[in-house]
C-alpha cells in the first residue's frame, strides 16, 4: 500500500470527506450571503447569529412543542426567515439610500443583540440536540466510519444549493430578481413590486442560514457563540468566490472545506488560517475573486 507523505490514502479520503461536510456548511451560509448581497448590496453580518438562531429554534421546537428534527427542518428556516423579514421591513430598509457600509454596521449590531440576548438567557454551555433516530449510526466505508447524519448533510446541502441556483438562474422569478439587481427602477416600471422582492430575498437568504443552523444542531453544540466564529470564515469564502456570484459562493464553499480538511492532516495548527491565506493569494492574483466580475 502506498503512502502519501506519511499519510495512508484511506485517512486522506476520510479527511477529504470530512472537509466536504464542513464545506457544505460554508456553501449554505455563503450562498445566503451571496443572494442577499446580490439583491440588497448589504453584507449581512447577522448571518452567523441567524444561523445560531436556526439551531436554537430547532431546539425550542423539540423542547417546548415536541416537534422533532424533520419538522424543524421546515419550520426553523421559516421562523428565521420571518425574523429576517421583520428586521428588513422595520429597519434595514431605511438604509438602502445610504452608503452600503451602514448596512454592514447595522447587521453587526443586530448580531451583537441576538448573541448577547441568547447568552444572557441560555448561558454559554450550549444545549444538546439529538441526532434524528432515522439517521443514527453509520456505515463503514472501508477508509472511514461515516455517520449517516453527516452523509445526509452533504446530500441535503448540495440539493439546496442546486435548487437555489436553479431558482435564480432558470425561473421567471429569478430573472426578475437578476433584472432588479441591475436596474431596480426599470423593473419597477414594468409593474413588479421591487421592495417586496427585496424583502423576500432577505427573508430567503437568512432562511438559508436558519436551515444551516438546524442541520448543524445535531453535530455541534447548540450555543449562542456558534455563529460568531463561523461568520468571518464565511466572509473570506465569499470574497474568494467573488462577491455577488452565487455559483462562486457555492463552489468556493465546498472547495475551501476540502482544502481545510487537507490542512487538518498535513498541518493541523494552520487549519484556521488556511482560508485567509488563500483569500490573500486570490485577491493578489484576481482582485474580484475567482468567479466575480470587477465592478
Amino acid at each position: 500500500m502506498f503512502e502519501l507523505i506519511g499519510i495512508p490514502p484511506q485517512a486522506l479520503f476520510g479527511q477529504l470527506l470530512l472537509g466536504l461536510i464542513n464545506g457544505s456548511f460554508y456553501a449554505l451560509l455563503s450562498l445566503g450571503l451571496a443572494v442577499i448581497f446580490g439583491m440588497l448590496n448589504v453584507i449581512n453580518f447577522a448571518h452567523g447569529a441567524l444561523y445560531m438562531l436556526g439551531a436554537f429554534v430547532a431546539w425550542f421546537l423539540l423542547e417546548y412543542a415536541g416537534i422533532g428534527y424533520w419538522g424543524a427542518l421546515i419550520l426553523a428556516p421559516v421562523v428565521v426567515g420571518l425574523v429576517g423579514i421583520v428586521i428588513e421591513k422595520t429597519m434595514l430598509q431605511r438604509l438602502y439610500k445610504l452608503d452600503h457600509l451602514y448596512g454592514l454596521l447595522f447587521t453587526f449590531g443586530i448580531a451583537l443583540i441576538l448573541e448577547g440576548a441568547f447568552k444572557h438567557e441560555f448561558g454559554v454551555s450550549g444545549q444538546s440536540y439529538a441526532t434524528p433516530a432515522l439517521l443514527k449510526g453509520g456505515t463503514n466505508l472501508g477508509f472511514m466510519f461515516l455517520p449517516f447524519y453527516r452523509g445526509w448533510v452533504v446530500v441535503l446541502s448540495i440539493l439546496v444549493c442546486l435548487a437555489t441556483w436553479y431558482a435564480i438562474e432558470k425561473t421567471r422569478l429569478g430573472s426578475y430578481l437578476r433584472a432588479a439587481t441591475e436596474n431596480p427602477r426599470l423593473v419597477q416600471a414594468f409593474g413588479i413590486n421591487v421592495p417586496v422582492m427585496i424583502t423576500l430575498t432577505y427573508g430567503v437568504g437568512v432562511a438559508l442560514a436558519g436551515l444551516a443552523g438546524v442541520m448543524a444542531a445535531p453535530i455541534y453544540s447548540v450555543n449562542p457563540l456558534m455563529g460568531s466564529h463561523l461568520i468571518i470564515v464565511v466572509f473570506a469564502v465569499v470574497v474568494i468566490g467573488g462577491m455577488g456570484s452565487i455559483f462562486g459562493a457555492v463552489v468556493s464553499g465546498y472547495m475551501l472545506g476540502l482544502l481545510e480538511g487537507l490542512t487538518k492532516v498535513f498541518l493541523p495548527e494552520a487549519s484556521n488560517i488556511v482560508v485567509f491565506v488563500i483569500m490573500v493569494v486570490v485577491l493578489l492574483l484576481r482582485p474580484a475573486g475567482l468567479f466575480g466580475r470587477e465592478r
Partner: peptide
C-alpha cells in the same frame, strides 16, 4: 448584558 446593550447602541446609531 453587555453585548446586547452595545448592539442596541450600534443599531440606534446607524
Amino acid at each position: 448584558p453587555v453585548t446586547t446593550v452595545i448592539g442596541v447602541i450600534f443599531v440606534v446609531c446607524v
